[in-house]
Design a protein around this nucleic acid. Structure first.
Lengths: 252, 252
DNA sequence: GAGTGGTCTAGACCACAGA
DNA sequence: CTGTGGTCTAGACCACTCG
């Protein structure tokens, strides 16, 4: 990892950040200054910083400077968030709010609800039309301490959700899952498919990440006890901000 | 995504690859040729190709050329691989072999077994010394169709494994999990923590990936019915080659 | 207006693979 | 030996932010 100059510069800066030379939010020296300091061209420093940026170790304020990002990742515990004990302990608050409060973050969210044409893969899984407005979309955007952290889009077939509280912004105590249960479509099983990819333009814009960073795409399907898919949720999160946890039983 | 020239070049090449202009393994035009074709400098083409490479869409044979990579991702179904029905259906073969055969891949693996000092995090979870050779490491390396795809290192406390079949390369029918069960340490629960990071040098070398690609690190802990950790396995896989699937029940 | 990072060019040298 | 991609430099212009 230490052959090329930009790799060496990157390694030195990583080390400086890992040690306590820089605090979260502190500005690094300018590229020109770093170039002089390390005795290399600015393009070389720029390439090194691009690496750090794509790792999530620094972020850039265009026209201002490069700043250090040193925050512990957020844990998304997929299994625990659906357990009764935990739900009861934390009352009506969502799973994410619970997780983040435990880490000392303050959570904010915005929700938009509309009827829409579902993406092809969602239409296929839900067994609805991919050409008409066949689903209700609940589009939520989350910030933690003023920092964007997650995009969550839930798709529910119109046949289930039309005219119900699911079409309102506030779904009430217990949220979307409880409303589905009220309507006779309680989810019994969850299937999640995880992939990692580059962000789309709108995702990168909301999450304030560079286009060479990566996001998790979690394709989450809620199924009833009869194995009927009743809800698809797609989660998009920057990989450097999150760790995922799953727990499951081994069939004896 | 289409402002800068290198992004436009990258977008055009992505599109050419996604359509059927190139087959898997086919060589792209040289950077010089692409630069002439698109009317930009070679450095710009190089930057675009670097993006595609980091996405796993192309790979480079140093001194030869840039080649297209178009293979469907491998699905790692964490839950299904531990279910009895599936295990019985496929006999003594491992979970991975089963998954890959279904996708038409031919699987090869190498196994090394040794006693070693565990990494700090592993020592902590297993409750063993992080200074002495307190674990047996089963280091496996997997290829599918001659392509490296996965690094799997399992750590078992010496207190459990010393002198048993676990210390031999061939663990026999049912593999490591069955031997743990034989020894009275049957795993009842699995916890997996997923993160995404840059590869270490040795990981990049084995997996034949560039140092700006990403790998999943899956920190997998096997626990007995009494919640005692008996095995830690760390999986390292390139993100562009794999999708992860988890399925779990919702507590009613 | 001054300073920042983002991008691009032209040109150069290198290590590597293969004929 | 030739052709490939990997890297680096010097210099330039740009859009952006902020005082």
């Amino acid at each position: 990892m230490a052959e090329s100059q930009y790799n060496e510069v990157a390694a030195k800066l990583r080390e400086a950040i890992r040690s306590d030379a820089y605090q979260h939010g502190e500005m690094l020296p300018t590229e020109a200054r770093l170039a002089a300091e390390f005795g290399v061209n600015r393009a070389t420093v720029n390439k090194a910083l691009r690496m750090l940026r794509s790792e999530g170790l620094v972020y850039v304020h265009r026209g201002v400077g490069t700043f250090v990002h040193r925050l512990p990742p957020i844990l998304r515990d997929a299994t625990a968030r659906h357990q009764r004990e935990r739900r009861e302990r934390h009352g009506s608050r969502g799973a994410l709010a619970t997780e983040l409060t435990e880490l000392g973050y303050e959570l904010e969210s915005m929700t938009e609800v509309r009827r829409a044409v579902p993406p092809p893969r969602v239409a296929e899984v839900l067994g609805v039309s991919g050409e008409e407005k066949s689903v209700v979309v609940r589009a939520r955007r989350f910030h933690a301490n003023q920092m964007p952290i997650q995009i969550v889009d839930s798709y529910i077939p119109l046949a289930i959700a039309a005219g119900t509280r699911i079409e309102q912004v506030d779904t009430g105590v217990g949220g979307l899952s409880s409303r589905l249960a009220d309507l006779g479509h309680a989810q019994a099983e969850i299937e999640e498919n995880v992939t990692v990819r580059l962000p789309a333009d709108d995702e990168a814009a909301f999450l304030q990440i560079a286009d060479d960073q990566r996001v998790y795409e979690i394709f989450h399907v809620g199924l009833t006890a009869e194995d009927v898919p009743v809800k698809v949720t797609i989660y998009i999160m920057p990989v450097h901000q999150w760790a995922l946890r799953y727990r499951y039983s081994v069939d004896p």
